[in-house]
Design a protein around this nucleic acid. Sequence first.
DNA 1: TCGACTTTGTGCATTACTTCACAAAGGCAC
DNA 2: GTGCCTTTGTGAAGTAATGCACAAAGTCGA
Lengths: 232, 232
Amino acid sequence: MIRRTPQQPRERGIPDATVARLPLYLRALNGLAERAVATVSSEDLAVAAGVNSAKLRKDLSHLGSYGTRGVGYDVQYLIYQISRELGLTQDWAVAIVGVGNLGRALANYGGFVSRGFRVAGLLDADPEVVGDHIAGLVVEHSDGLESVIAKRGVSIVVIATPAPAAQAVCDRVIASGVTSILNFAPVVLTVPAGVDVRKVDLSIELQILAFHEQRKVNGGPVMGEEWAGEVS
Amino acid sequence: MIRRTPQQPRERGIPDATVARLPLYLRALNGLAERAVATVSSEDLAVAAGVNSAKLRKDLSHLGSYGTRGVGYDVQYLIYQISRELGLTQDWAVAIVGVGNLGRALANYGGFVSRGFRVAGLLDADPEVVGDHIAGLVVEHSDGLESVIAKRGVSIVVIATPAPAAQAVCDRVIASGVTSILNFAPVVLTVPAGVDVRKVDLSIELQILAFHEQRKVNGGPVMGEEWAGEVS
DNA sequence: TCGACTTTGTGCATTACTTCACAAAGGCAC
DNA sequence: GTGCCTTTGTGAAGTAATGCACAAAGTCGA
Ligand SMILES: NC(=O)c1ccc[n+]([C@@H]2O[C@H](COP(=O)([O-])OP(=O)(O)OC[C@H]3O[C@@H](n4cnc5c(N)ncnc54)[C@H](O)[C@@H]3O)[C@@H](O)[C@H]2O)c1
Ligand SMILES: NC(=O)c1ccc[n+]([C@@H]2O[C@H](COP(=O)([O-])OP(=O)(O)OC[C@H]3O[C@@H](n4cnc5c(N)ncnc54)[C@H](O)[C@@H]3O)[C@@H](O)[C@H]2O)c1
């Protein structure tokens, strides 16, 4: 049986919170597909994805009515629909700027390629690093950033340079027409409207953990402590 | 002038959204402190942190009244208060389990130590990796996980193993009394109540970027495409 | 064919977060 | 002192996200 994709009900956009969870559902669905599960209920999928089942159903309802009442969702079909919604049915060329500790780890990471993200360029400013072979690519000098972006159709750039270099790299990348940036440098990037920046800051995650950990131990921050600094 | 810390007004907890932004403010404040700025208005700090100034003021108001009307906030004093709130005035021992590409990058990252997070242990299951010297530490075998946690007072564990190993590592870590985990493996970890897990999934970030990128280019997912898969 | 059973999709109440807008606080110039 | 000017801290209104609870849809066994 061949089924056509139904109408696109998404008159007005999908909520951000939903978009952020779709990859999670996709991951859970891929796990089920590997175990040859044909259909899954919202309840089971919700458990696998670590969310509430009502939330999952509401999220999926934003994409269309892809479930069957009394049965659940067809795993393969839902994988296809979510992938299409996220734009993973096409291939995205990604460039990584800053090939240090983190940039190398990212370049070697298989989890990108398996999702349709192809690392199309590795760029660094350090002549020592330029020329290194990493994950089947040769590191190029970041002077050629603009031409790499243009020639290889790069549409997403990952910035993994030290913080002081990030804004300058960001500006050049945007001038080259890229409007999607994943930033690992611990700085707030200033970008024009229409450019999406997502940031990952690992030390922020640890700080949030520390906050909660402190509460568990003490019931709160150290109290009655003295402030010994000079104030104005 | 020496000032005592005022009363703790935090009768009921600080909103999660606020906690997640405090590290951001801290980073912006440290930037100002380096440039020897003494006081800052909520407006200026908000710009530096990339948020709305009303939000910033409300966030800070959850910690107490640390500003001065007509003047702004004392940079050093606010750094101290936020640090204390986040628990950064104490030293946290962190262990990294899984010393592969990512684990190494994390171990070498200076941004943790500078925030009071001390890497106290590196553990891996691969005998090839055990014994390596990284960032002044020797990689130990993950068989000794429990004893490393106990003896070095580890309270936060970073999991950077492949996905299939993550849940088992997580279980052992929790059994050792750790209740704060930062997980890089792309799996949903099942943990008992009282344990905090934060997860970082880089491929999710890319997928979110791809979603928005697709909208910019096409105005939405590829339409009218045919579904060629078998359905139930 | 039918009826019992399962599970979706969603209206609605609730909770969480954001943003506006302004009164009150406090500094500072004179 | 006094009054002006800046900026905080926060009610209140607005917006977004969550989770409940159930009618409607569809399956499947008999
Ligand atoms: N390593 C981690 O685990 C980690 C964790 C969190 C955040 N970060 C952040 O990620 C970034 C990279 O971290 P890292 O540990 O890989 O640092 P790193 O110093 O190992 O690597 C940075 C690389 O960027 C290159 N570079 C510098 N200026 C450049 C420019 N203008 N154009 C292109 N390349 C340039 C350097 O030559 C170097 O190879 C930093 O901002 C760091 O704060 C890293
Ligand atoms: N490298 C990246 O940029 C990146 C990005 C996103 C997510 N991740 C995830 O982070 C994790 C690590 O990635 P990586 O690239 O460093 O992988 P890797 O294969 O380079 O390293 C994994 C390490 O974990 C060790 N290990 C395996 N089982 C273990 C166990 N039971 N106990 C202790 N150690 C064990 C292995 O010996 C290896 O050294 C993976 O789950 C990956 O999906 C990595």
